[in-house]
Design a protein around this nucleic acid. Structure first.
Lengths: 237, 237
DNA sequence: GAGTGGTCTAGACCACCTG
DNA sequence: AGGTGGTCTAGACCACTCG
């Protein structure tokens, strides 16, 4: 575990942002301050800050400084949920309902993405959630997590109700990229009931594979979206 | 027009990749070579290469070199079409049909994204294309280009049949990010006919706004996708 | 005018890959 | 062993922001 200097600074600053020591809109210490405090050169400081920019934690402004961005914005890029963005943009309120307690399962015969032997053997923890904007159900989400974490997610309470935050705080696991396949489908009965649609109404369906900073650990999701009222937004940079 | 050194090198290398001087899998000259040839320091060379990595033109390997990636992969990140990816992955052949010659139009009363006064006054050039995989129509695409380019896109032949390539070669305009809204809709009669679906069948619909390296120049698209056979893939990093 | 980030120089040592 | 990219040092000048 020999991290380069710039990674250490990067992780330190990220932690300080995530724990609220620096909040949205705050300025980080200047590159010069950081250089003096950590006894490294400005090049190295800049390397650390470049990473944080790439990850969306800060943006930089010439003559001003490094400005902390909101975590919503950060997630927005990755999540593609539209959920948080929609909620944020419209000042509606978002709500997530656990359809049932998370449970262990094997992967079934035909999982939507290929699995490694290790993943297959461990089975997975399944989470079924319904996400709403105000009182409108918008996303029905099935999440599949390989059961390879100790002590296991089943026993843990979630930080802030958020799976990603829990993984980050408890296991240092961070999502670094997402691959997804998107389709338009007619709603099946289960989907129709939860999303308050008629059967056969068009729904947006997304298969997702999340890559993390652990090379052998992935997350999987299957999402059904009612886009009648709210579209799903995303940004590519 | 005072470009920093690293931008110049970045653009030179990009041009050489796009024109095939360096092809997929080739190694770029080493950082040391580039430094000597261009009389700049390695730091500056690395800055240029970092940009190309970010844009997906190359990937770097320690002990090996900077390897040129395929342009398909590159576009894949931005395009979100799934079109080229699907075609590439399955070794089917892609085909684009101009439904009619491009034509001038005002924007209509309710364009899907807000427009600047300058854009409104100029009107737009419209392109209607149908993209197919083998013989299956997959994407019906309407593209709207503000009519602010001289001599105007209407008179120009397209490079490689590609709008993006034409903009890059003729005007030095490059797309740098995309904002989009995605929905599932029932097919209307026009869409149904072109995509060979029944009316009311679910189609994926995407509104897109492309941001370019010209701060005041955007492109707009509206896409209808038949996802019955081919899903739309995308990657977030 | 003082402080900030943006660009750049001229070196250095390391880990990794390949012959 | 020699070449590659990865990390890092210790400086410099510039353009921009703000009081």
């Amino acid at each position: 575990m020999k991290l380069p200097q710039y990674r250490k600074l990067q992780h330190l600053l990220k932690k300080q942002i995530l724990t609220g020591i620096y909040q949205e809109g705050d300025l980080l210490p200047s590159e010069n301050d950081l250089r003096l405090h950590h006894q490294i050169t400005r090049t190295t400081v800049r390397q650390a800050l470049d990473q944080l920019v790439k990850e969306g934690y800060i943006r930089k402004k010439k003559g001003k400084g490094s400005i902390v961005r909101s975590q919503r914005e950060t997630l927005g890029l990755l999540s593609f949920h539209g959920f948080s963005e929609v909620v944020k943009a419209t000042e509606h309120t978002g709500y997530t309902k656990w359809l049932k307690p998370s449970y262990w399962n094997d992967w079934g015969n035909t999982f939507f993405y290929p699995l490694s032997e290790k993943e297959k053997k461990a089975g997975c923890i399944c989470i079924e959630r319904l996400r709403s904007v105000d009182t409108d159900p918008v996303i029905l989400e099935y999440t599949f997590i390989p059961n390879v974490l100790s002590p296991g997610l089943l026993q843990l309470p979630l930080v802030d109700q958020s799976l990603f935050k829990t993984l980050q705080y408890e296991y240092n696991i961070e999502v670094i990229s997402v691959v997804q396949d998107v389709r338009a489908l007619p709603a099946n009965p289960v989907v129709a009931i939860h999303l308050e649609l008629r059967e056969q109404d068009p729904v947006l369906h997304i298969y997702r594979k999340y890559k993390t900073n652990r090379p052998d650990f992935f997350l999987y999701s299957s999402l059904y979206c009612n886009t009648a009222k709210y579209a799903i937004g995303s940004v590519f940079t």
